[in-house]
């Protein structure tokens, strides 16, 4: 009972989306199915396959340590995502004003994004080094500390430290998305708000924020996915320590897969993450969609 219009719509939609779908099918779906498959196998991935069913899932879901790691990962991801969204949005709004020097700041503020994660992690680690790093040296010179501060050596400060560095590295992409998003908010809305006497803050609340909702939704979902799975910066800065304070789930996956040669368990962990993140994304889209309406 479809109208001709709907049919044409449907066909056009498919034509536009098929190229991307094909590439993703080949390159992501197959590996994911492969992941599902090996999560049920005890295998050397070459010539020895033994079906073990849900063994690894049961092992994981009855493992208190696994849940501890999940919790740390969730708190870490939440801190970084909120930090990125806050800093990114704030800076995007600031540089979007029509006042001098903003084009220069736009470039400067993007700089952290251009660094490879490896380099970001190592520069900061080097900077925080109690003996050879600039951080302690400066604090000493200013007489702010008596004894070297080992930022990455205490659980509390180490966690704050890696979150800080991850925000340092991660906010620019949010800022960029917000800047692009703001360009599509029609000027008339601001003008209308200004005529109504709204000040900058009210304009932000009533015009900018609602206008950015679609972009914010995308940003929150993807940021959550990325940081939940994050590996490099934390691995290089603290290796999950001290005493597991920064131990993330991806560190464990790496360890299981490539150190312990236990691909079944690593794959099972990945599948659990996949489902967890799907649920989170679903909740996001519900909440944010309602808010924008």
């Amino acid at each position: 009972m479809k109208s001709a219009f709907a049919k044409r719509e449907s066909r056009s939609g498919m034509i536009f989306t098929i190229p991307a779908a094909l590439i993703m099918l080949g390159l992501v779906v197959y590996p994911m199915l492969y992941g599902f498959f090996i999560s049920t196998q005890k295998s050397n991935l070459i010539d020895k396959w033994e079906f073990v069913g849900a063994k690894y899932y049961i092992q994981l879901l009855t493992d208190a340590e696994f849940f501890g790691t999940l919790k740390t990962t969730a708190i870490f991801a939440a801190c970084v995502v909120i930090g990125n969204l806050f800093v990114g949005l704030l800076l995007a709004v600031l540089v979007n004003q029509k006042i001098p020097l903003m084009n220069i700041f736009k470039v400067i503020l993007m700089l952290p994004w251009l660094f490879p994660e490896v380099v970001v992690a190592l520069i900061w680690k080097w900077l925080f080094s109690p003996l050879f790093g600039m951080f302690n040296y400066v604090l000493f010179s200013l007489n702010l500390i008596e004894k070297e501060v080992d930022v990455l050596g205490q659980p509390g400060t180490a966690f704050v430290g890696v979150v800080f560095v991850c925000i340092w590295k991660g906010y620019p992409i949010v800022m960029l998305m917000m800047m692009a998003g703001m360009k599509n908010i029609p000027h008339e809305r601001y003008e209308a708000a200004a005529i109504d006497g709204a000040n900058k803050w009210q304009q932000f609340l009533n015009v900018t924020l609602p206008g950015l909702m679609p972009v914010l939704l995308v940003a929150s979902i993807l940021e959550t996915a990325w940081w939940f799975k994050h590996f490099t910066i934390v691995w290089l800065m603290t290796g999950g320590g001290p005493a597991g304070a920064t131990e993330l789930i991806s560190v464990d996956i790496y360890l299981q897969a490539f150190t312990n040669f236990n691909f079944g368990r690593a794959a099972a962990e990945s599948v659990i993450i996949l489902f967890l993140l799907m649920v989170v994304s679903f909740i996001y889209s519900r909440v944010l969609r309602d808010e924008s309406q």
């Binding site: 989306t17 779908a21 992941g35 590996f231 794959a267 993450i273 996949l274």
Partner: peptide, 23 residues
């Protein structure tokens, strides 16, 4: 465009971002 499988397609694209890349 509204086409069949549109929301599935979007979730599918999203899902590809949710799987740890090391695997």
């Amino acid at each position: 465009f509204k086409f069949r499988g549109r929301s599935f397609y979007m979730s599918f694209l999203l899902a590809t971002q949710l799987f740890p890349s090391i695997m």
